[in-house]
Design a protein around this nucleic acid. Structure first.
Length: 380
RNA sequence: GCCCUGGUAGUGUAGUCCGGUUAUCAUGAAGCCCUGUCGAGGCUUCGACCCGGGUUCGAAUCCCGGCCAGGGCG
């Protein structure tokens, strides 16, 4: 333990166990630790929709990810800095990641154009266009005071040609370097903020590989894998993921951005991913898809109208311990916010339990069995 | 008893004056989808002209009668 702590103090991340490529590790941040594999609910606008911080914690959440670009537009990073940082502002004292905004390139209505020096975005609030640069987004994240900041990346949509993807990955890597060497990043790093690079390359393994290898040469605190689970089929995603992972340093955390379905999370854990985030559990929860050990159920279906059992017999979440399928079905039918809250809490808890069970299994050396058993009962 | 309005999916409605494709839209119901900016979102399907008669090639639409609802007069 002492050795682990010493190691952590210098490295921020340490591996506790490995089984095959699957890893159990600990990321140390200035707001506590993140035991990996870990799943982060999305709190884009400094809140997880319908779920309060205490409920996130109760569901086993160690970290959330917020969006630096959107917060910089409203309420403004200066205001959040004035509030004492994002942790105080949203009253979440655990780990907070911030995303840079690069992903918003995929959003029509926000994305305008790219330039060599950054991305031109249009504010969804005011329509005002502004160029955001890698250096600026690091300064914004420094102001927000998040524990882990993402460099600005250039995201190519699924369906982009290999030339476009190469271009996107090359620009992403250039920006990652600029970000790392920016004054804001240097200073915030000294203050304990961690900086993650983002690997691109679309669905092309060779592009993933070369660009991951390039980023691996720099001393980032962790590596994100971006531009996946944006519509491509699993047969294309996993080879690309494997290619990226193969070039990333073992002793740094790997974060697969945007993946949130249970089986895919386990597939990625098996390949060596440590951290996940996704709106999937909360978005689909509001739209009535609930995860259970036996698969996903649609709670709005008439078959649950008189089902007085919990959503999942094996779940220990607030919703399952206190409410029936019939009640949550009813709340869904009448569109009550409380239903959205209970459903979101359940799905978050489901994924938190999934990754912590996976972690335990890796430590115990039983990950393969755990995965097989999960796969056998979870019919998607 | 008389007069005036008005009856269109489960609900709310457009169309009616001036007759003409598969009758509009919303909501609802059933099913599918959602993955680093998550909207009470997207897609598919289902579902109605109050009843009866008349005019007409053709009626939700025009005419007559009935029933029902609201208003007025007695």
């Amino acid at each position: 333990m002492t050795a682990l702590l010493l190691q952590s103090m210098t490295r921020h991340f340490s591996l506790e166990a490995k089984q095959g490529h699957a890893r159990a590790g600990i990321l140390i941040t200035r707001h506590g630790t993140l035991e990996t594999p870990a799943f982060m609910p999305v709190a884009t606008k400094a809140t997880a929709k319908y779920v309060e911080p205490r409920e996130l914690v109760e569901a086993g959440t160690q970290a959330v990810i917020s969006n630096a670009f959107l917060l910089s537009l409203k309420p403004g990073h200066e205001l959040i800095k004035k509030a004492g940082g994002i942790h105080k502002f949203m009253n979440f004292d655990r780990v907070i990641f911030t995303d840079c905004g690069g992903f918003q390139m995929l959003r029509e209505g926000i994305f305008v154009s790219t330039k060599p020096q950054g991305i031109v975005f249009k504010s969804p609030y005011t329509g005002k266009e502004a160029l955001i640069t890698p250096e600026e987004i690091m300064a914004i994240q420094a102001d927000l005071g998040s524990d882990v900041a993402m460099v600005l990346d250039y995201v190519a949509p699924y369906g982009a040609t290999i030339e476009q993807v190469k271009e996107a990955a090359t620009i992403s890597n250039r920006w990652a370097e600029w970000s790392l060497h920016s004054d804001a990043a240097k200073k915030s790093r000294e203050e304990g903020q961690l900086i993650f690079a983002i690997v691109h390359g679309g669905i092309y393994p060779e592009v993933r590989k070369s660009h991951a290898a390039y980023l691996a040469r720099w001393n980032f605190d962790g590596y994100s894998i971006g531009g996946l689970s944006i519509g491509e089929p699993p047969e294309k995603m996993f080879p690309a993921l494997e290619a990226a992972l193969s070039e990333l340093p073992e002793d740094k955390p790997r974060y697969l951005m945007g993946l949130g379905s249970p089986l895919e999370i386990l597939e990625a854990v098996k390949r060596g991913v440590d951290i996940f985030d996704s709106a999937y559990p909360t978005q689909t929860a509001r739209h009535n898809s609930l995860m259970t050990r036996k698969g996903i159920i649609k709670i709005s279906s008439p078959k649950y109208a008189e089902d007085f059992s919990p959503v999942d017999e094996t779940c220990d979440c607030y919703a399952c311990k206190n409410f029936s399928r019939a009640y949550i079905h009813f709340l869904s039918k009448v569109n009550e916010p409380a239903g959205k809250q209970l459903k979101s809490i359940h799905n978050i808890r489901f994924l938190q339990k999934l990754v912590s069970d996976a972690r335990r299994a890796i430590i115990e050396g039983s990950f393969d069995e755990f995965f097989e058993s999960f796969k056998a009962s979870f019919k998607s």
